[in-house]
C-alpha cells in the first residue's frame, strides 16, 4: 500500500501528514504536486489541510481544477481510496466526490481548538474498528466547516450510513453545544456512496505524534491501515 499526499499551492498540512504516515504509522508515502498528472502508483490518496489557492472564490473551488484532480477523480471513480482532511474535504465536495458543501462557520469565527468526535458507524474502512461509544479528541482549525446539504441529500447520506463522524462532547453526547461550526446534524465527516472516498474537517494527523500530547487521531488513521493487512 502506497500513500500519496496531493500538494497544492497553499496546502500546509502536507508535511504533518507525511510525517505521521511515514514515521508514526510506518507507511510508504510520497508527495504529489498538483500540476502532475501521474499518481506514481499510489493506492491511497490524501488531500491535506491548508488554504489551497488562498481559499480564493470558495475554499477548494480552484484546487478542484488543478491538473492532478482529473486523475484523483478517475482513481476515486475506479474504487480507489481518497481521504480529504479539512481543506481536502472542501476540495472533495467541490470536485463532486462527496455530497454537500462546507459553509462559513455559523459564528463567523475561525475555529482552532480540540473537539470531540464520535464515530457514527463501523461500516467503513475509516471507522471499521472504532468504539462507537467513545469520544475521540481531535483538533479542528477552520473558518468554513459548516457541513450543509439539501434535505433530500441529508436523508440519503443518513439512510446510506454515509455519516462517519459527528461532533460530540467529552462524554460522547452529540449535542448542539458540542457543534463547533453549525454543521447540519453535527456532521464532522462523511464518505461517498461507494465508501471509498472520505472527508472530515478535524485533523487526526495533528493528534497522532505522542510528542503533541494527544494520540486519538492516530487511532482514526490506523483504521485506514486495515487495507494493508
Amino acid at each position: 500500500m502506497k500513500f500519496g499526499v496531493v500538494v497544492f499551492p497553499g496546502s500546509n498540512c502536507d508535511d504533518d501528514t507525511v510525517h505521521v504516515f511515514r514515521h508514526i504509522l510506518g507507511q510508504e508515502i510520497v508527495k504529489l504536486w498538483h500540476k502532475s498528472t501521474n499518481l506514481e502508483g499510489c493506492d491511497f490518496l490524501i488531500i491535506p489541510g491548508g488554504f489551497s489557492y488562498g481559499d480564493y472564490l470558495r475554499s477548494g473551488a480552484i484546487a478542484r481544477f488543478s491538473p492532478i484532480m482529473d486523475k484523483v477523480i478517475e482513481h476515486a471513480n475506479a474504487g480507489g481510496y481518497v481521504l480529504g482532511i479539512c481543506n481536502g474535504f472542501q476540495v472533495l465536495v467541490e470536485a463532486g466526490l462527496l455530497p454537500g458543501v462546507l459553509l462559513r462557520n455559523d459564528h463567523q469565527k475561525f475555529n482552532s481548538k480540540n473537539v470531540y468526535l464520535r464515530a457514527a458507524t463501523n461500516h467503513s474502512l475509516f471507522t471499521g474498528d472504532l468504539d462507537l461509544t467513545r469520544a475521540y479528541k481531535v483538533p479542528v482549525a477552520h473558518a468554513e466547516g459548516r457541513y450543509f446539504t439539501d434535505e433530500a441529500t441529508l436523508k440519503q447520506i443518513i439512510d446510506n450510513d454515509q455519516v462517519l463522524f459527528r461532533y460530540c462532547d467529552a462524554d460522547g453526547q452529540v449535542t448542539e453545544a458540542a457543534n463547533p461550526n453549525g454543521s447540519l446534524d453535527n456532521i464532522a465527516g462523511i464518505c461517498n456512496a461507494g465508501r471509498n472516498v472520505f472527508g472530515l474537517m478535524p485533523h487526526p494527523e495533528r493528534a497522532s505524534d505522542p510528542l503533541l500530547g494527544n494520540t486519538d487521531g492516530r487511532i482514526l488513521l490506523e483504521q485506514l491501515l486495515a487495507v494493508t493487512a
Partner: peptide, 8 residues
C-alpha cells in the same frame, strides 16, 4: 462550473 456553487 466554477464561479458559483449551486448547492449554496
Amino acid at each position: 462550473k466554477l464561479l458559483a456553487n449551486l448547492i449554496m
